[in-house]
């Protein structure tokens, strides 16, 4: 039997179990860990399809960075989600309809690895025939003795760099990748502009939030020796938490 198929079925079953568990579990920490596990399983699926770059990205971004960012968010908010009704019929109908539509769409797609697929008949030969990202006059794969003028290895991909994905990303679609980088840069700049505040603002906002959240209690003057320098320990024991700004 087809080993790739067996592994795929096994891994996708695991991914399905992980996905269902993410929905069912109430602890957000567990959900975060499960989503990391889901990403790792999907990375294995991509590797099984020989899409190593995609698998690498999935493992690094999906299982690594996203999990850490979600953990940071959880530690800043709370660890349990609200109780929700177990089954929303309308939501289930929408999900099932969309999923069914997607599966119906895959029926028209060629089989996995089919050499007669349209992409291999029309698009890929054109891409490989392009001169962008390619050294002109380079003989095809496996036909040349190593050339002292171009000391690249023999597995040089028809004059391209050996990794086709990098060749596609950086040369064929150099503009695309450049603006993707610009998008990431824009995201970072937006974060800095929107969320980063100056230190004074943050301390002030934190004070305000603590005042808002805590139940108003009579502010008893905490007896302090007048000339004592101390380190503030807790939120409640600090005299500068007293609402002197409102006076």
């Amino acid at each position: 039997m087809n080993e790739v198929l067996i592994l795929d079925v096994l891994l996708l079953t695991l991914a399905l179990v992980a996905a269902v568990a993410i929905v069912r579990v109430r602890s957000l920490l567990a959900a975060t860990m499960l989503s990391g596990i889901y990403s790792l399983i999907m990375a294995l699926v991509w590797s099984n399809m020989h899409a190593l770059d995609v698998g690498f990205t999935e493992a690094a971004v999906g299982a690594g960075a996203t999990t850490v960012l979600l953990l940071g968010t959880i530690s800043a908010t709370g660890r349990l989600s609200r109780r929700t009704p177990s089954l929303d019929l309308r939501a289930a109908a929408v999900v099932l309809f969309t999923g069914g539509l997607l599966i119906y769409g895959t029926l028209d797609m060629p089989d996995f690895g089919d050499p007669h697929a349209p992409i291999h008949q029309h698009r890929v030969p054109k891409l490989l025939a392009q001169q962008v990202g390619k050294v002109p006059g380079r003989p095809p794969l496996g036909m040349d003795p190593p050339d002292p003028a171009h000391p690249h290895p023999r597995d040089d991909f028809n004059g391209h760099v050996p990794n086709t994905v990098t060749s596609l990303l950086a040369a064929y679609r150099g503009f695309d990748t450049m603006f993707e980088t610009a998008v990431i840069f824009t995201a970072g700049i937006s974060l800095v502009l929107l969320l980063r505040r100056r230190d004074d603002d943050i301390v002030e906002a934190w004070d305000e939030r603590e005042r808002e959240v805590q139940t108003p209690r009579p502010v008893a003057p905490v007896p302090q020796p007048p000339t004592r320098s101390y380190t503030a320990v807790g939120a409640s024991a600090e005299p500068d938490d007293a609402p002197k700004g409102e006076a």
């Binding site: 960012l69 940071g72 968010t73 800043a76 969320l195 934190w206 320098s229 101390y230 380190t231 503030a232």
Partner: peptide
């Protein structure tokens, strides 16, 4: 994302002198 926590810990280290 971790800024509030971070600022809190920073603030706790602030020496307040009267």
């Amino acid at each position: 994302i971790t800024e509030p926590r971070f600022m809190r810990s920073k603030r706790e280290n602030v020496k307040v002198t009267d």
